[in-house]
């Protein structure tokens, strides 16, 4: 049973955030990969994270093998962080909306990092992470939302199915 994200949470998730997706491989090893963009479904019950398939091979293989998914979204300027978890994620074929979302994300997150004083090299590196043909899209329906903003309250459950 999925939960419905609040409008604020949906808006936050689609901001210029650092996004990382984790899974657990068949061998029990946890793995993680940076993602580059997210689309929240209109009903706010599912979202699609975008990542470079080549860079995220281990995570994608783990999810294909039935691993649960954990995705962390963090705003670099404020450290406001959410973690969403779901028991599974499905790979969907990337479409033009996904590509557009990825391009928007790279520009917005790059701008965010530049505003924080990170150099041009880093912003260029960020945008170079994903080659256009390499995009993978993972759709999942979160069952738990955690507040993971650093501090003693990190780990608090904000919503659960």
């Amino acid at each position: 049973m999925s939960i419905r994200l609040s409008a604020e949470q949906a808006a936050f998730l689609q901001g210029p955030l650092s996004i990382n997706v984790g899974a657990v491989g068949r061998d029990g090893w946890p793995c993680v990969c940076r993602a580059q963009g997210v689309l929240v479904a209109r009903d706010r019950r599912a979202l699609t994270v975008l990542l470079a398939a080549g860079r995220g091979r281990e995570v994608l293989d783990a999810l294909d093998a039935g691993s649960g998914i954990a995705a962390v979204f963090s705003h670099p300027a404020t450290h406001a962080t959410l973690q969403l978890k779901a028991p599974c994620a499905a790979r969907v074929a990337p479409n033009s909306a996904h590509h557009a979302c990825h391009a928007r994300y790279a520009a917005a997150f790059g701008g965010e990092l530049a505003a924080l004083g990170y150099g041009d090299e880093l912003v260029r590196g960020l945008t170079a992470l994903t080659a256009a043909g390499d995009l993978a899209a993972l759709r999942f329906a979160p069952e738990v939302v955690f507040d993971q903003t650093p501090g003693p309250a990190a780990g608090r459950v904000l919503a659960t199915a």
């Binding site: 990382n20 984790g22 029990g28 962390v72 978890k85 993971q148």
Partner: peptide
């Protein structure tokens, strides 16, 4: 300079991802 990320696994197999200061 750039925060690291750590992925771990709960006993029930659920992944967890967190920032490492």
């Amino acid at each position: 300079a750039i925060p690291a990320v750590i992925a771990t696994c709960a006993p029930d197999g659920t992944p967890n991802v967190a920032y490492a200061s």
